[in-house]
Design a protein around this nucleic acid. Structure first.
Lengths: 146, 146
DNA sequence: CTTGAAGCTATAGTTGCTAGAGACATTAAG
DNA sequence: CTTAATGTCTCTAGCAACTATAGCTTCAAG
């Protein structure tokens, strides 16, 4: 059995994060030692690794909650898990598209800056006047989060 | 003079967001009508458009605060503004790189899923075992934010 | 003159943690 | 066996950048 610190080290997750996951019900309540410290076995370790990996791939905690409850029912169809993964892929693709446009616009801005005074600064000028932009990046339909 | 609702409409910013910007000092305190309602002129409109545009390009409010105070000093060198824009570009580029890797991994996952039972689901399996991944996307050096 | 939309303030919620305070537990050295 | 250092406990508050709610006042149209 591992203490919370050892578990965190093993899984690459900070200790308060583990307690947070327990608090929001993503990890079950841990067993406790005589001195009231959390103790974890292999199952908890695997579950935490799953969460960590999914987080690394950008899944939200809500999606992970669903994926975990699916993985607890091995006999069911995997359509739901597939759908969650596809949704995440779509999300990542839309962020990629958006970021690519932003990158182009920022490059334009930075390249054009001649390095003089603020009054002539292309950066400030472009920010102040959207019509100077090449692409229409206004009114983003989805957030950029992640 | 515009009311807050008209200003928000014109600039594509929600009303509570405008009040929020005023609260954190990004917009100056607005003039008030006899009935205590905020009134905005062209200067406020331009400032809000600047903020909105910079937000669309992914600048943080802190960066925008700096850019705004720079734009108030037209005779100074634009090196600082340039540096902020370049930092933002670098940030966007690093996110792009990361998201590109995520996309590849998610695609692999989704493509391999044969659509059977959870027990055989590639999505669940890959999430549970990082060694099944092609790339090492663990321990991200920077957050994915935005 | 009434009604409904828009405005006001203040507070709390969102996501996914992270940081701090102050108290108890465990371990390693002396 | 004691002490010191670390680890853990709970609880609360903070981060970005808003968004939502409640309960009020003001404004504009009919």
């Amino acid at each position: 059995m591992l203490t919370i610190g050892k578990l965190g080290e093993a899984a690459g997750v900070k200790v308060p994060t583990i307690r947070y996951y327990e608090q929001i019900g993503l990890l079950p309540e841990a067993e406790r030692s005589a001195g009231n410290q959390r103790l974890y076995g292999r199952k908890a370790m695997e579950r935490l690794a799953f969460i960590r990996h999914a987080r690394d791939l950008g899944f939200t905690l809500e999606a992970i909650r669903d994926l975990l409850s699916l993985s607890d029912r091995p006999d069911q169809s995997c359509a739901a898990a597939d759908a969650i993964a596809r949704a995440q892929l779509a999300e990542v693709e839309s962020r990629l598209a958006r970021l690519t446009a932003l990158k182009a616009e920022l490059e334009r801005m930075v390249v054009q800056c001649a390095g003089g005074k603020i009054a002539d600064c292309r950066v400030i000028e472009v920010l102040g006047d959207h019509s100077l932009c090449a692409t229409d990046h206004r009114h983003p339909e989805s957030e950029l989060a992640q």
